[in-house]
Design a protein around this nucleic acid. Structure first.
Lengths: 266, 266
DNA sequence: TGATGAATTCACTCAGATAATCACAAACAA
DNA sequence: TTGTTTGTGATTATCTGAGTGAATTCATCA
């Protein structure tokens, strides 16, 4: 019974409760009480493996958060609010926190976000790289050129590209398989698809993009092309912004030359 | 400059970031970078008052979360994602967490939530008491009787009562001032309003409620009637559920007798 | 090329929080 | 009475994170 399938849920719930600010004792106690409904300190201690004498403190922590009620008898009994109510409480609290953070940060961030002309920045990890790509796409005003290897043209990116296209941004995409090309044509009819400009296959290449001619990003899969592309840590990108930015200058030259010499598949 | 009005936002933002799982160094560094846009370790240290030698650790923590990019030069420069993106990230993460928690808890809570017949539970603090009241109202199927002193019939309760009324639950409310009565009549036309059954004014009474004849709750303002009712800590309630529950038995007797002898104001 | 100062990394101390254990008094049962 | 359970408080151990300083690397200038 101590190793049945519910243990997965138990540990997940405990972990999340801890992340949300409860102590481990409080989290374990809460989970135990949730399966028990009500219980005494001894019962809770047996289920949760919290030292019995500490159950009282843990329950007190939960009581202050309004998650547990107490029956003043001997032995004391403890009652836990329903799972739904608990989750609503936490969601409420998180909403509160994020909204506080949002206003505070926006108040601070009002200072000019001057576009750095010189820097070339590095990002690690596929999620973070995707974030930058999405940010670039979201800020595009005129033109997006995006080259990518298989598997790095995810749905969210296609979606963002589609939105940009509807804003009137011209889109050029390269380096994708035929079936994905079909998806693109459905999603973004105005996109211009052209063949990969050079041999991706020999390089551990990830993506190359240029936005409005003055924002560029290039990524590689650091483990080489044989690495599992699904490993999110294996992608590293550099990016830069500004007319005078060196990375921008280089990539713009490459793109311009390649694009002029390439025959669009369209 | 070190004590201008932005410090409020600064401390709020730092506090929230810490609550969301960042270390204080990381939080301070992030806030500093948010006002700077980009900066070196030295600049960050001056603004954030993080020891300069630890800025690197803090930035690393932020980088792993995808909140900061690094320019590999000497001195290193650090770039921070926009406030909007950051908040979206955190909201995303919180959604993830609460949804994980929700499924895990509901999986655990499937065990029968047998209605305890014997227990009388105590709740402390006005928010927690209101929670129970709302839960009772939400689960009502037939009838709600609710007596309250001024100030404890808050909007959310009126709203919940209205919803119950639309479900076909008959509502009886007492102990409210004439102007609030007007609001009730608007919100819940079917509610039956009657005068206070006895002299509240001599007792430190809070609320009395009975739902479906088998769930009851009674609260007092522990600091007496002269205490500020606005102090959320001053309310304490006891509640019980079940036909054979002693508190239910007592309150049901009182309510039945009083209601039969009282002339509804309606 | 070497010297100087700044930048970066690393190792260490200290304090506070939390986990865990123990000791003890009160209540209760046999 | 004796022995058990319950609740409370004190004590110890462990760990994380804040803060400091030394050692190494790097850039710049003579």
């Amino acid at each position: 019974m101590s190793t049945d399938s519910g243990d997965d849920f138990r540990s997940v719930a405990i972990e999340q409760l801890k992340q949300l600010g409860l102590s481990t004792y409080a989290a374990r106690t809460f989970v135990a009480l949730t399966s028990l409904g009500t219980g005494t300190a001894t019962e809770i201690s047996k289920v949760s493996e919290v030292p019995r004498t500490r159950v009282y403190d843990a329950v007190d922590e939960l009581r202050e958060r309004g998650l547990v009620d107490i029956q003043q008898s001997s032995p004391k009994k403890f009652w836990v609010v329903s799972a739904e109510t608990t989750c609503q409480k936490f969601e409420q609290e998180m909403r509160q926190r994020t909204s506080l953070l949002t206003t505070a940060l926006q108040e601070l961030g009002t200072t000019q976000r001057k576009q750095e002309q010189r820097g070339v920045w590095t990002v690690e990890g596929q999620p973070a790289v995707t974030d930058r790509v999405l940010e670039f796409i979201g800020g595009a005003e005129d033109e997006i050129v995006y080259m990518t290897v298989e598997g790095l043209l995810t749905e969210d990116i296609v979606e963002a590209l589609g939105e940009a296209a509807r804003r009137g941004v011209s889109i050029r995409v390269a380096g994708i398989s035929p079936d994905v090309q079909g998806m693109i044509r459905d999603e973004i009819p105005d996109a211009e698809l052209f063949d990969t400009l050079w041999m991706w296959s020999d390089t551990p290449a990830g993506r190359l993009m240029m936005v409005d001619g003055n924002q560029t990003l290039a990524s590689v899969l650091v483990n080489g092309r044989d690495a599992t592309p699904s490993d999110p840590r294996s992608e590293t990108a550099i990016w830069g912004v500004g007319e005078t930015n060196s990375l921008v200058a280089v990539l713009r030259a490459i793109f311009t030359w390649r694009l002029e010499n390439a025959d669009p598949a369209d």
